[in-house]
């Protein structure tokens, strides 16, 4: 452990400012481990030297590399399984019944990291939607580096081992050198965009389903509330929001209600109370 308290404070302030993610005490080890490769790329002899240089001469590229290194996590395909099972067995059948007119489904994978979640969603929709239906997936992440990686759609052997059923691997990916690349037909259904969920969100057509998983846990309650409020405006009135297993809207934003979705929970916007029937009792 060579990271000084001052260096740790600098990094945690930077990461909090850029991403609203809080790196509390005890994360010094994580910070140092994640910054070793970043420091090495810049030619610095150590993390301490790298951080000293960047504090002397603030450099946006170096700063964004620090934020990237600390805000990205290894992700699995069909992570946690249950939300995907709920999507294919409950949510999509209901949406298929409600969207017979335009036969199109829009899904947002917010904080998509290196792309496993949006591509998993694309595989699930492709396998579940009846013929004649179309879908589009938007993947967003705060990290520009992650968005570039996700757009390439190439994954290492270790990455495709993680939670991806082998039948789905051989149907949706092709081997390219040491990697596996998402097949073009699937790749075309997913678009990626860099987005900071805590900043004002761009204007987007509304979504039928939003996956916002394992993101809110990093935010304080005010930030959680503001993110949930702005995402609620981009969710169709009969849409579905999926959060991480340790996350909830309860006690944060009363515009959502928790509903059972298969073996897990999802969140839906409370129906606006029609004018004239709002009895106060």
């Amino acid at each position: 452990m060579t990271l000084s308290a001052a260096d740790f404070a600098f990094v945690s302030a930077l990461v909090r400012r850029e991403s609203s993610i809080v790196l509390g005490p005890g994360k010094e080890y994580l910070v140092e481990a994640r910054l070793i490769p970043v420091a090495r790329q810049t030619g610095a002899a150590s993390v301490a030297e790298f951080l000293a240089a960047i504090q002397r001469h603030p450099d946006p590229v170096g700063q964004s590399r620090i934020v990237d290194a600390l805000t990205t996590n290894e992700t699995s395909w069909f992570r946690d399984q249950d939300p995907f099972t709920a999507l294919t067995t409950q949510v999509l059948p209901e949406l298929i019944a409600n969207r017979a007119a335009n036969r199109h489904i829009r899904v947002w994978s917010a904080a998509c990291s290196s792309g496993q979640e949006p591509y998993s969603l694309a595989i699930a929709l492709r396998e579940t939607l009846p013929a004649g239906w179309t879908y589009e997936i938007l993947g967003t992440d705060i990290s520009g580096e992650m968005i570039e990686r996700a757009e390439r759609g190439e994954f290492s052997q270790v990455e495709v081992n993680r939670g991806l059923p082998v039948q789905k691997l051989v149907h949706n990916f092709e081997r390219v050198g040491a990697h596996w690349r998402v097949m073009p037909a699937l790749r075309r259904t997913v678009t990626f965009q860099r987005m900071n969920l805590t900043a004002p969100l761009p204007a987007l057509p509304p979504f039928d389903v939003i996956f916002l998983r394992n993101v809110l846990i990093y935010f304080d309650v005010e930030t959680k509330r503001s993110v949930l409020r702005s995402m609620g405006r981009l969710l169709r009135p009969d849409g579905w929001l999926f959060l991480g297993a340790a996350e909830t809207t309860i006690g944060v934003d009363d515009n959502y209600e928790r509903v059972v979705a298969g073996r897990t929970s999802a969140y839906r916007l409370r129906a606006a109370v029609p004018v004239g029937t709002a009895g106060k009792g």
């Binding site: 080890y29 290492s156 052997q157 270790v158 040491a178």
Partner: peptide
Amino acid sequence: NEIVEQVWASYLDPEGV
């Protein structure tokens, strides 16, 4: 290098440190 990195991540340095 890519193969070797994966071997490190899997068996020799799973914590990435």
